[in-house]
């Protein structure tokens, strides 16, 4: 190996680690990196937010899901306990999407009234059990869902 080649390698490796740690320090510690916003925060959006793609996390309100077939899609409501926003989505939702469970949607808060989702991601909780236990009504300890939204 030539000396320049080695030196480049050393510089690159140090830059890699420094960059990774720097991202960590600036992104996560500085609280600039918020993975998703809550429906309450969406409600407080100013009109100039309407062109920016945002991720919103919340719980799918029970009984709010309505599907339609021409074109295939659905509407539902997302809540964080304090505020609720209506969501419109065209397409087939993921299999784990369910009422009363968490979901993270990506899309646009267009007219200040409705959220147009381009992608739905299903959030599942940290409890795992066979269906028999679930039917028997067993509740395993888990973090309160609303608190996972804005800890």
């Amino acid at each position: 190996m030539g000396t320049t080649y080695k030196k480049t390698g050393i510089v690159v490796s140090i830059l890699l680690v420094a960059g990774a740690l720097g991202y960590l320090a600036l992104g996560n510690f500085g609280d600039n990196l918020v993975y998703f916003v809550t429906p309450s925060e969406v409600r407080a959006f100013t009109p100039d937010h309407s062109r920016k793609k945002v991720r919103v996390g919340g719980m799918v309100v029970k009984g709010s899901v309505h599907t339609h077939s021409e074109p295939v899609g659905l509407t539902f409501e997302l809540t964080d306990g304090a505020a609720t926003i209506p969501v419109v989505f065209r397409g087939i939702p993921p299999d784990l999407f369910k009422e009363g469970q968490g979901a993270v949607v990506e899309g646009y808060w267009k007219d200040g009234k409705t959220f147009y989702a381009t992608m739905i991601m299903a959030k599942h909780s940290e409890d795992y059990m066979p269906i028999e236990l679930k039917r028997a009504g067993v509740q395993l300890p888990k973090k309160d869902f609303m608190r996972t939204l804005s800890p």
Partner: peptide, 12 residues
């Protein structure tokens, strides 16, 4: 049958 836990429209 037993109450379906995960049945909803638009689900495979």
């Amino acid at each position: 049958g037993p109450p379906p836990e995960n049945l909803r429209e638009l689900k495979t």
